[in-house]
């Protein structure tokens, strides 16, 4: 890795985490939104429980408005996107202008979806932009360690979310393998004991989701 400060190493990691949080929460929201159209109007309560975020919403409409685009709701997709943006904007030197444009475009598309009665259309564009961002990270960033740090952020966030959502075993195992395979290739400090335990947990028939979330959250050492 070229010279890079500890602050920016941290920002790369969090850029990975927040971009993943935006992507996965937008997809999860889409499922929940679909159910709330005509099947289960109160599905947002279960959604909040699953993601372990406070249910501060008064109705389906309130949830759909605020969870997508309320800048004052720290759990909203918009707030998470702005955190990704805040990290990306100071990493131009490390990742380049082109990857940043996809985060910037996500912000514009998110603002458009705010006023739409069909928010999934706008959110689809946000998801497309995030996918394009990850693609361009792979394609354009020459420095392997910079790529890896972003990806580790992404993997840790995904595993954290999948653990909270108690996703199927195959998904958890796949994400653990991806994380384990990559983390040793970065210069991040991480807890090797926790990583070993994570590997073992992924081999178990019964997934201990709470333990996985706890391990993932303490895996990276500052």
């Amino acid at each position: 890795m070229g010279i890079i400060s500890v602050e920016n190493l941290d920002r790369l990691f969090w850029l990975g985490r927040y971009s993943e949080r935006v992507y996965t929460s937008a997809r999860l929201f889409a499922d929940s939104f679909d159910r709330m159209i005509d099947v289960d109007m109160e599905n947002y309560a279960a959604f909040c429980r699953q993601l372990d975020i406070p249910n501060i919403y008064s109705s389906r409409e309130d949830f759909c408005d605020r969870y997508i685009s309320d800048e004052n709701d720290p759990n909203s997709i918009y707030s998470n996107l702005m955190r990704a943006y805040d990290n990306a904007i100071v990493l131009r030197n490390e990742i380049g202008s082109e990857p940043i444009t996809y985060i910037q475009l996500s912000v514009y598309d998110m603002k458009k979806s705010k006023v739409s009665r069909a928010p999934l259309v706008g959110l689809q564009k946000v998801e497309d932009n995030i996918l394009a961002f990850w693609g361009i990270v792979d394609d354009m960033i020459e420095d392997e360690n910079i790529r890896n740090v972003i990806k580790i952020g992404k993997r840790i966030e995904r595993l954290d979310l999948y653990g909270r959502l108690q996703m199927n075993r195959e998904s958890i195992v796949r994400e653990v393998h991806r994380l384990v395979g990559r983390i040793a290739r970065t210069n991040l400090h991480y807890d090797e004991k926790n990583l070993e335990e994570l590997k073992k947990l992924a081999e178990e028939e019964q997934i201990d989701y709470d333990r996985i979330v706890a391990l993932v959250d303490t895996l990276r050492k500052d």
Binding site: I3, E7, N93
Partner: peptide, 25 residues
């Protein structure tokens, strides 16, 4: 980005023994 210089804030630079250094991660 365009010049290939390093972008830094004051907290990433330090002086020691009359020289200026960039401190990496």
């Amino acid at each position: 980005e365009k010049t290939g210089a390093h972008l830094a804030t004051g907290s990433e630079l330090m002086v020691e023994d009359d020289y200026l250094y960039f401190v990496d991660y």
